[in-house]
Write a protein that binds this DNA or RNA. Structure first.
Length: 811
RNA sequence: GGGCGUUUAGCUCAGUUGGGAGAGCGCCAGCUCGACAAGCUGGAGGUCACUGGUUCGAGCCCAGUAACGCCCACCA
């Protein structure tokens, strides 16, 4: 059984997402390890190209140094130093959570062997023709000075001014009006397009417009892309700076002018008076120039979505750039199949649809980044003969002309290396024993925001390079929001540090809280659930102390005799079965809550209270039964609450051969111990106890008072009722009967206010009458009796009989 | 523009195949009962967003409406 951890960034610090994710993976790993499976939780960190480079760059800048001053080699050296110093922070933090990763085998995506894997994949995909170099429109992030992929772009709603601009027609006084929110891009316009079916412009097609300011002649062309309903129905075409215009330009063979340079300023192609200006300055100047000539017909505010870099937060500049791309269509096909066939399953299921919808629309992936920190492309150019060599090992000389070779400056997108994680973390491309034993992995536990960035690409690469799926289950965790429902974020000040929570309440408490919060939807962080976990851990400790301090020399052994002993074991085994089932189904919330209910209510509130007197008397059978239950419930709880269970486990009696709980056996539900009769019998005693307690409260009987009572018929209540409901069944049985609760008649005695008792009884009678009326109404409905299933009707009749009986008894 | 999710007790959330609405916290009342006040006992509190439909019966199924949230998308 294996899990490859989603490798945290080396720059990362543990946040609530990691804590949830780690708690879940750890429960799965511990569960399967205890089941005796050969288990690996592979650990490692991600070099995180842009993030890490920015952190180190920022540090340098604080010292007044730019990375360009010290050069690439020195800069990369500094990043490695940074990584040596801080890179293991998050790993240490995972330990505090109790994550039982394989810390001995920690990997890093820039390890020597990992680099080998990345280069091998790049070269192989290049040989297949999937990876190629092209001059193409990319998302340029001026913040990081690099191209980024479509997935690293986020669209934000922005209100800009939309300008309607008149382009004069050549040889006429007429104009054609186009609209734009980016007037500065007109400097690179090379056409005007209209819809082929737009009759308004039919006469203009084939004529020429004159680009204001610049004076360039623009052909008026037709393209289906243009929406005649939108604006004037005429569209200025800027193939160099707009994705759609680029496509249209390629369709029509238009000139591609790059008026904006990669540094975010206007290039020489923008023309005199514009070169060197920032985009915004250029915009102002273009608008001013147009105003002067009356070229602006209208300007109005316009809300639209604009691409921003997910990394740097700067506005993305679409521009044409020479980059390396990876064609995805053929890689996607098998990756679609395995999800459609259910070989890779998503939990919750609906994410499979999201995955498939995206996979069916895959466009080429821009994999090159203009950074220094990362896997440098294994691509070598010969300036002498223009040969390009793609090879894992750098060749000495150009194979064509023996000339000098120059390695490509770019590095790969970080997600390119992460895509190999499930097999590269196990040592691929070497055929290691780990790879043989643990690939494919079992569960991938991750957040939904990287389904495309990471999950999909791992499936594609796993199938391409191992011929096998990388994992069979993908569990998508909830997103944990701040308690007020906002995003948890550092900048908003809404973040909650899991380490602070661990300090305050303990790792088990935080884990329990996170399990109960986990859901199929987003949830708000609930400090109360963490407290519930802290209380449970505390309860486990105290209950264990009670048992261990009073068990003498007893050894764990199920006691056969008493109904309550059989009852608790039956409840235990059902809990074992149910909690296990929930864990296997990734239903951690119910697993945790069912454990809580069993331990708190059934074991502590009822069973311990029932057996206390015998335990104090040194009854070995009772102590043995308790130890038996305790051992099993500790083992059951261990995957979720490792610390407190292990600590108690160490205190259990034994001959010193007891293994640590972490490597002890996980309990299998024992069908033999499930005892419906015992459960029914004790259920009756508990109901009766609670009914009498309720009566006492209604009647205002002081908590400490023992009530005189007697039993009316042969159905004698168990002695536990007498004690837990504080009755004296051996008192003088001749007093006035104040009330009958089931088979128990409560007699008048000094401490009871008879009048108030009557009120209490009357309140209960009113409840019962309402229930009787409800049941009678239902059974009086002929159609219900005729159409409802027989067992439902029968059940209703039994209820009615029961309520009538109690109503009569309650004199 | 398309898709997905959510709407249940004051708060945060559960509610399996339709068959008398649940938990934790909070609230009220009462408890030094030899593990635990981070505890024990009892209790109050809900036209399950809205409208219509199917059904003997709907929190659950169907259709629609509203609000909130998320994802995807090239409309100047």
């Amino acid at each position: 059984y294996s899990i490859a951890i989603p490798p945290p960034n080396v720059t990362g610090v543990l946040h609530m997402g990691h804590a949830l994710n780690g708690s879940i993976q750890d429960a799965l790993i511990r569960l399967n390890r205890m089941r005796g499976r050969n288990t690996l939780w592979a650990l490692g960190t991600d070099h995180a190209g842009i993030a890490t480079q920015s952190v180190v760059e920022k540090e340098l800048r604080a010292d007044g140094i730019s990375r360009h001053e010290i050069g690439r080699e020195e800069f990369v050296k500094r990043v490695w130093e940074w990584r040596e110093q801080y890179g293991s922070r998050i790993v240490e933090q995972l330990k505090r959570l109790g994550a039982s990763c394989d810390y001995e085998r920690e990997r890093f995506t820039l390890d020597e062997r990992y680099v080998k894997a990345v280069l091998k994949v790049f070269v192989a995909l290049h040989e297949k023709g999937f990876i190629y170099r092209d001059n193409y429109m990319v998302n340029w992030d001026p913040g990081s000075g690099s191209a980024i992929s479509d997935l690293e772009v986020e669209n934000r709603e922005v209100t800009d001014t939309i300008y309607s601009i008149d382009y004069p027609l050549e040889g006429s006084d007429e104009v054609i009006t186009v609209a734009t929110v980016r007037p500065e891009t007109m400097l690179a316009d090379t056409a005007v397009a209209v819809n082929p079916n737009d009759e308004r412009y039919a006469g203009l097609v084939g004529r020429t417009a004159i680009l204001p300011i610049v004076g360039r002649r623009l052909p008026i062309i037709t393209d289906e892309y243009v929406d005649p309903e939108f604006g004037t129905g005429a569209l200025k075409i800027t193939p160099g700076h707009d994705v759609n215009d680029f496509e249209i330009g390629r369709r029509h063979g238009l000139e591609e002018i790059s008026a904006i340079a990669e540094d975010g300023t206007m290039s020489a192609a923008a023309g005199e008076g514009y070169e060197g200006l920032t985009v915004l300055e250029a915009r102002e100047r273009v608008v001013a120039a147009l105003r002067e000539t009356g070229g602006i017909r209208a300007e109005e505010p316009y809300a639209h979505s604009v691409p921003y870099s997910h990394r740097s937060g700067e506005r993305v500049e679409p521009l044409i750039s020479l980059q390396w791309f990876c064609r995805m269509d053929e890689l996607a096909k098998p990756a679609i199949d395995v999800v459609e066939r259910g070989e890779v399953r998503f939990f919750p299921e609906r994410w499979a649809r999201v995955y498939l919808d995206w996979m069916n629309e895959l466009r080429p992936w821009c994999v090159s980044r203009q950074l220094w920190w990362g896997h440098r492309l294994p691509v070598y150019y010969c300036d002498a003969c223009e040969e390009t060599v793609v090879a894992e090992e750098a060749p000495e000389r150009c194979p064509g002309c023996e000339g000098e070779l120059r390695q490509d400056e770019d590095v790969l997108d970080t997600w390119f290396s992460s895509a190999l994680w499930p097999f590269a973390v196990l040592g691929w491309p070497d055929e290691t024993p780990e790879l043989a034993a643990f690939y494919p992995t079992d569960s991938l536990v991750t957040a939904r925001d990287i389904i495309f960035l990471w999950v999909a690409r791992m499936v594609m690469m796993g199938l391409e390079f191992r011929g096998e799926i990388p994992f069979s289950d993908v569990y998508i965790t909830s997103v944990i929001q701040a308690p007020d429902g906002r995003r948890m974020s550092k900048s908003l000040g809404t973040g909650i540090d899991p380490l602070d929570e661990i300090d305050a309440s303990g790792a088990d408490a935080v884990r329990f809280g996170l399990y109960t919060m986990s859901s199929t939807q987003d949830v708000r962080y609930s400090p109360a659930k963490v407290q519930q976990g802290r209380d449970l851990a505390n309860k486990m400790w105290n209950a264990s102390r009670l048992i261990l301090l009073n068990s003498g020399d007893a050894v764990a052994a199920p006691a056969p005799g008493r109904v309550e002993d059989r009852w608790i074991r039956s409840r235990l085994e059902r809990t074992v079965a149910s909690v296990t089932e929930k864990l296997d189904a990734y239903d951690f919330a119910h697993a945790a809550l069912e454990l809580y209910d069993f331990f708190w209510s059934e074991l502590c509130d009822w069973y311990l209270e029932i057996v206390k007197p015998r335990l104090y008397d040194g009854d070995a059978e009772t102590a043995g039964n308790l130890l038996h239950v305790l051992e099993r419930v500790l083992a059951l709880a261990h995957p979720m609450l490792p610390f407190v269970t292990e600590a108690i486990w160490a205190e259990l009696p034994g001959d010193g051969e007891r293994l640590p709980l972490v490597v002890s056996a996980f309990p299998e539900p024992d069908e033999q111990a499930m005892d419906a009769a015992a459960e029914a019998e004790l259920g009756r005693q508990i109901d009766l106890t609670r009914a009498i307690r309720r009566w006492r409260d209604l009647a205002g009987v002081a908590a400490g008072d023992v009530l005189a009572a007697r039993v009316t018929d042969g159905d004698r209540p168990h002695e536990l009722v007498e004690r837990l409901a504080r009755l004296d069944l051996h008192a003088d049985a001749s007093g006035e009967v104040l009330a009958a609760v089931g088979p128990v008649e409560i007699l008048a005695s000094g401490g009871v206010d008879a009048e108030r008792a009557r009120e209490g009884v009357e309140a209960r009678r009113a409840e019962l009458r309402a229930e009787v009326a409800r049941a009678e109404g239902k059974l009086g409905n002929e159609r219900f009796v005729a159409k409802a299933p027989a067992d439902v009707v029968e059940e209703e009749r039994e209820k009615l009989a029961r309520y009538r009986a109690e109503l009569e008894e309650l004199a």
